[in-house]
């Protein structure tokens, strides 16, 4: 009973906040609604018994991705009139993407009702044993059956990361960055001298 109530609560809030993401006038509000949607999706994952995925959803999307979204959106100088003017121009593209996503969902549901895809375990012995935690089951699968796909994903992410660094890195001349090692290696003898100058003679540096 409580499962059903919880499911409809999470599902309703997810859908409602997802709608509000695109309906909100203010982009910052949109991002905040998006965070609420992520959070409730994580709740749905917990209901499915996929607590590991739920936690990852919160850590990665709510904790990192959405913070960066918010970071960027907060700094925007928002012109509401211009935003609304772009709506008609972008509507066909948006509709196209929405239709493609809807078709994908439909295909997924049809394929699932035709027969469940068997994820199985490393040696092909069917589903992971009951009692093994989520994390162990996912780890066993990722590092055996899907090892090469997993490594490939890692390499793609690495390339993307290096690409982002290369694209945004710039060498500026005329700046004098702090060299911590030099500062720490410096000794009093290199920076100061003790002199006893005669009166009226001054110090030659």
């Amino acid at each position: 009973m409580i499962h059903v109530i919880a499911f409809y609560l999470f599902a309703f809030v997810t859908l409602a906040s997802a709608v509000l993401v695109i309906m909100a006038r203010n982009p910052v509000h949109s991002v905040l609604w998006l965070i609420l949607a992520f959070f409730n999706a994580a709740g749905l994952m917990v209901l499915l018994g996929a607590e590991f995925i739920a936690m990852l959803l919160v850590i990665v999307y709510v904790g990192a991705v959405a913070v960066l979204f918010l970071f960027v959106v907060m700094m925007l100088d928002i012109d509401f009139a211009e935003l609304r003017a772009g709506f008609v121009r972008n509507a066909p593209l948006g509709l196209l993407i929405a239709v493609i996503l809807a078709i994908e969902l439909f295909v997924g549901v049809v394929a699932n009702s035709a027969g469940k895809a068997s994820l199985g375990t490393a040696d092909g012995s069917g589903a992971s044993p009951a009692g093994a935690s989520n994390i162990e089951a996912i780890g066993a699968l990722l590092y055996s059956r899907y090892l090469f796909l997993f490594e490939a994903a890692g390499i793609i992410l690495l390339v993307a990361m290096i690409g982002a660094i290369v694209l945004t890195h710039r060498q500026r001349s005329g700046v004098r960055p702090q060299n911590i090692a030099d500062q720490i290696a410096r000794r009093p003898g290199e920076a100061t001298i003790n002199t006893r100058p005669d009166v009226g003679q001054g110090v030659q540096l």
Partner: peptide, 25 residues
């Protein structure tokens, strides 16, 4: 007593930043 306890802590502590960010904005 959940078996993703430490991940839960990470998830919750990553939420903490929102209070500050929303306040600032």
């Amino acid at each position: 007593d959940i078996n993703v306890g430490l991940l839960y802590i990470l998830a919750i502590s990553s939420l903490g930043v929102y209070g500050v960010v929303i306040a600032g904005w």
